[in-house]
Design a protein around this nucleic acid. Structure first.
Lengths: 222, 222
DNA sequence: ATAAATATTTAGACTTGCCTAAAAATAAAA
DNA sequence: TTTTATTTTTAGGCAAGTCTAAATATTTAT
């Protein structure tokens, strides 16, 4: 079992994140943006990771993770999300506080630890932000979720996830009394700016911007 | 709050460990032995840490931690021992498996995390090896403990700690059915080699070597 | 008290991961 | 299809942390 530095692991995760969204390969610049570093540093690291057969690299062509790179990246995501569950469920952190800590905990090297943590938490399927947690084999649950912005007036739904996990966005949601599991119904949609007024749990009514609607995943109630 | 690299933190802990035992200052060679590195590397790091005012350094004179260095080292010990408790109490690891994992976990930077972990574990005073856990102010409980080797035939005692925490020693203790909290009574002491035969919990009788006796801390029953 | 042994420091070099500036390749626009 | 803009790579350098070999200090032993 190859052992990677934390920097190497972070690059793998960044590439994983970029490619899982777009499907296609990750560009040097895109990686540099996510890693908050220079393109030159990225090129260095890509060569290094290619040398370890964790990704496929050809000059000027962008990169994609290899089978092995994908496994390792998935395991990192698994660890990150399990630790987030631990922090929220066991240590009572709020969902906007856990990212940075999990970012460190995910680098702890011990498969036994991950397995026991998973069992202790009763094999959760989703993290505090509604993101699916890969199991030990790398498989994760899927949900038929859509963006809140895709709902029409009258539609009822359950808030099941957030697209963005920045502390400021999550704190905004707290203030609006929006949390995972909250039931809602679209009352009105304003074509002018795409904002919506929605009813929470059948009573309270709030209005949220289009930007917010595009960062909330919901599951339509039949 | 200064942020240290893991290497810097590990040196602090090593110096802390050496000086707390002997009381006196730590020599370059002693540090190199604990850190499993060369004396030259140690000298480099000592200069670095002295520059950060974490220890007092004069060429060829050995080093001692400064006030601040001591605080940081104590906090590392606190984190290490709290994580060990977590691993054993919550995740059901055995006491011989937790050192290496705690060695990694102790570097996670978040005072909030330590505080919450401490509370979650109900502010334990001792870790799974019987070592005292410093509280947030750096104070730790003391116990009137002695080495088992200091007991005389007829003395009754409770096993409360181990001096050495290597996996092989701990596994040996498991095999002998010796664990923290075990009650024992010295039956006989053999002057020939310092070994002892002892009665466990009033029934089973075992014989252990002098070396083992010198690595077990006990509390005499009045 | 001097020689021999041991401990420590200096010097120089290597790797990892980062940087900036400049060169080269690719993509976009005229 | 050339020119222009953008992206990517190369080149050279820097800091942290490590190493070995050589120089210097200190301790121990004769």
């Amino acid at each position: 079992m190859e052992t990677l530095t934390q920097a190497e692991e972070n690059y793998l995760k960044a590439i994983f994140k970029i490619t899982e969204k777009e499907g296609k390969s990750a560009s040097t610049n895109a990686i540099a943006a996510v890693m908050n570093t220079s393109a030159a540093s990225v090129t260095d690291m890509l060569k290094r990771l290619a040398g370890k057969h964790l990704l496929h690299y050809e000059k000027h062509r962008g990169v994609a993770l290899s089978e092995r790179g994908n496994e390792l990246a998935t395991n990192l995501v698994r660890k990150h999300r399990l630790w987030e569950v631990f922090l929220v469920k066991m240590l009572d952190f709020s969902w906007d506080q856990v990212h940075d800590i999990a970012e460190q905990l995910e680098h702890v090297q011990s498969e036994e630890l991950v397995e026991r943590l998973d069992a202790y938490l009763e094999r959760p399927q989703f993290d505090p932000h509604g993101d699916p947690i890969p199991n030990a084999e790398g498989k994760m649950a899927t949900r038929k979720q859509v963006l809140l912005s895709a709902l029409a007036p009258g539609d009822a739904a359950l808030l099941v996830g957030v697209q963005e996990s920045t502390a400021t966005f999550l704190q905004y949601l707290d203030r609006m009394r929006l949390s995972l599991g909250t039931g809602l119904r679209v009352k009105e949609r304003f074509d002018y700016d795409g904002s919506m007024s929605i009813l929470l749990n059948g009573n309270e009514e709030i209005t949220i911007s289009h930007k917010v609607c595009e960062n909330l995943f919901v599951q339509k109630s039949k």
